[in-house]
Amino acid sequence: MSTEQDQTGPDLAQMRQSYERAGLTETDLEPDWPAQFRRWMQDAVRGGLREPNAMVVATASADGTVSSRSVLAKGYDARGVVFYTNYESAKSRDLAVNPSVSATFPWYELQRQIHVRGRAERVDASETEAYWAQRPRGSQIGAWASPQSRPLTDRAALDALQLQVEARFGAADDEQAPAVPVPPFWGGWRIVPTLVEFWQGRRGRMHDRLVFVRDAGSDVLDPAAWTVQRLAP
C-alpha cells in the first residue's frame, strides 16, 4: 500500500487554527474545581455551543483494551461528574472490572477543554430515579428497548424491541399513559475525580493548562486535599 499523501483528499497536515481568544492564569481560577467547572460551563452555554454537556468518556476493559465514546453529563458537584447509561453496556462492563475513567469536554469554539480523570462509582438508586423522572418518555422507552452495545441483525430488530416495550408501557408519544419505571439494568455512574484540568488554547501552541490535583487516598470532599498545578503544553 502506498504511503504517499492522497492528493484527492484534505491535507490534514495543513489544518491548523491559531488559538488567541484568551489566557488562563492562576489568579483567574475559582477556589475549587466545581466552581471553575460551573463558570466555564456557563460560558459554554452563553456562547451557544451545541450540547455543551457532551463529553468523551474513555474506559478500559480488564485486558486493557481502551474504548471511547461521547455521552452527556447530567450532573456535577464536589463529588464528581455524573452520566447515565445501561449497566449492561460496553462502557459499564468496562467500569465494573476497571473503574479507572477519564472524560473530556471538547469546547473547540471556545478554544477550551476540561479533562476529568478518576474512578467511577454507581450513583444511588434515589439519584437515578430523580433523573429518570426528568427524561422524555421516548428516551425512557428507548432505555428499556435497547440491548445497548449488543449485536443486532438489522434495524427492524431494534424497532421490534421498541414495539414490544410500547405494548407493555404505552406508546412513546402517549403522555397520558402510566409512568415508565426505571429499568433494573439502567442507572448513573459518577466520575469521582483525582484530577480536573482546565485547558485554554494559546498562540503558538503555548497553551495554558491548570490542574486541580487531589492527594492520593484523600476524601474528594476535603478542600485541603486539592492543589493546583500548571502543566507544560
Rank of each mutant, 00 (worst) to 15 (best):
A60T: 02
A60K: 04
S61V: 13
S61Y: 13
A62M: 12
A62V: 04
T65P: 03
T65S: 15
V66Y: 11
V66M: 09
S67M: 12
S68R: 07
S68D: 09
S70Y: 12
V71C: 06
K74C: 02
K74N: 01
G75D: 00
Y76G: 14
Y76S: 08
D77K: 00
D77S: 07
A78T: 04
A78G: 03
R79V: 13
R79A: 14
R79N: 12
G80E: 05
V81Y: 14
V81E: 09
V82E: 02
F83R: 05
T85L: 00
N86G: 07
N86M: 07
Y87H: 06
Y87P: 01
S89R: 01
A90Q: 05
K91P: 00
S92M: 08
S92H: 01
D94M: 02
D94A: 14
D94C: 11
L95A: 10
L95R: 03
A96M: 02
N98H: 14
P99R: 03
S100Y: 13
S100P: 11
V101L: 08
S102D: 08
S102P: 12
A103Y: 05
T104I: 13
T104G: 15
F105N: 11
F105S: 11
P106I: 09
P106T: 10
P106M: 04
W107E: 05
Y108S: 14
Y108C: 11
E109G: 05
E109S: 13
Q111V: 04
Q111S: 09
R112E: 09
Q113N: 06
I114R: 00
I114A: 00
I114S: 04
I114M: 09
H115W: 14
V116F: 01
R117H: 15
R119L: 06
R119F: 13
A120W: 00
E121F: 15
E121S: 08
R122E: 06
V123L: 04
D124S: 01
A125D: 12
S126P: 14
S126C: 09
E129Q: 15
Y131I: 10
W132R: 02
W132Q: 10
A133W: 03
Q134A: 03
Q134C: 09
P136C: 07
P136V: 00
P136H: 09
R137H: 06
G138P: 15
S139P: 09
